[in-house]
């Protein structure tokens, strides 16, 4: 029998170079699903996948690893993804983590696991600036990718060589256009991950000379494409990659944090300390307050005070049908103190 990687080896003109490679993908939504499937099929040695969300009916249109049953069961994306990609390639070691990738979780992952490459499967700028600082601090390349509507963008960031994400974008942009407001079509996702995935295969094979040093963007509906040389944007005084880098996005902020999730009309509330909750205990606390509670072993869903909420074991709560972070924080404190 021919090796399962024979066609890839034929193209690369070398024996399978990916066996000992480890990739960390942050986010298992549309981009993360596509990237995970691509790399697992390509035969990397190890994949670590971290995601904070669970599978929702509206994800199925573009998030290729998930099926109707996952949405019905509200499985955490990392878990549903693990099951699917392990079926695709049983030879890859997969680590799936259901957590909000904040500075603490991601720094620990970098320290303990030393991945060869970081891939952006996130849906927000805040986490991308965090990935960028991790990349610089631990000297590991990362590949930015983002999409909305019919457009997408991608860029390879190599510490010590290319400008970093902070150089390109000196301020956190106001989240003007998201999947919530502009929607998203699957081809925009796949085109973005095609750019990210190709660069990943080059980097993991050590083909540095072939790596794209340009920022690429496109619109598959308006039929536009551009690729811009970005060397000139590297800043020597950059707080993330400059001579006196201090990695501003790695500083843990000890407040309760909230985030509006892209495309979900949902607010996440994240408590400051890493707490682990017992779901049975949580269910009884909520039932005492008059909630109707169901659980699937990974998370708990409830309707309380006319709001549909989901609680994870790490203490995070999602409040659905809301874009009001302050209201969500208040509800959290009301329910869990």
């Amino acid at each position: 029998m021919e090796s399962r990687y024979s066609r890839q080896e034929l193209f690369l003109k070398e024996a399978h170079p990916y066996t000992d490679k480890h990739v960390l993908i942050v986010g298992a939504g549309a981009l993360g699903s596509s990237l995970a499937e691509m790399l697992v099929r390509a035969g990397i040695g190890k994949l670590t996948l971290i995601d904070r969300d669970y599978v929702d009916w509206t994800n199925l249109q573009r998030q290729q690893l998930y099926k109707e049953q996952d949405a019905k069961e509200r499985l955490p994306k990392a878990e549903a993804a693990r099951t699917r990609i392990q079926e695709i390639n049983s030879g890859v070691e997969i680590s799936a983590i259901t957590a909000d990738g904040g500075p603490e979780e991601l720094s620990t992952l970098m320290e303990d696991q030393r991945p060869d490459l970081l891939l952006d499967g996130t849906d927000n700028f805040e986490t991308r600036f965090l990935i960028n600082d991790l990349s610089q601090k631990y000297n590991v390349p990362w590949i930015y990718g983002a999409c909305v509507g019919s457009q997408g963008i991608s860029c390879v960031i190599i510490p010590g060589e290319t400008p970093c994400f902070t150089c390109l974008l000196d301020v956190l942009p106001a989240e003007g256009m998201t999947c919530d407001t502009a929607g998203i079509i699957a081809p925009a996702v796949q085109m973005t991950t095609a750019f990210q995935g190709a660069e990943a295969l080059k980097i993991l094979a050590g083909r540095w000379g072939d790596v794209r040093r340009e920022l690429v963007s496109f619109d598959v509906w308006k039929n536009t494409y551009s690729s811009i040389k970005i060397e000139a944007l590297k800043k020597t005084n950059c707080p993330s990659c400059g001579e006196e880098a201090r990695y501003p996005y790695l500083t843990e902020d000890n407040r309760t944090k909230t985030a509006v999730l892209c495309g979900r009309n949902t607010v996440q509330v994240r408590p400051p300390n890493n707490r682990t909750f017992n779901l049975t205990e949580l269910a009884s606390i909520l039932e005492k307050q008059g909630a109707k509670v169901t659980t699937n072993g990974f998370l708990l869903s409830a309707v309380i005070l006319e709001k549909r909420i989901v609680l994870f074991q790490d203490g995070r709560m999602l409040v659905h049908g809301s874009k009001d972070p302050e209201g969500a924080k208040k509800l959290y404190q009301q329910l869990l103190g």
């Binding site: 981009l31 993360g32 849906d123 963008i153 256009m177 502009a182 963007s217 551009s226 811009i228």
Partner: peptide, 10 residues
């Protein structure tokens, strides 16, 4: 002219 807009979705 090339105009590249940073987007955040994914």
């Amino acid at each position: 002219i090339e105009i590249v807009q940073f987007v955040g979705g994914g």
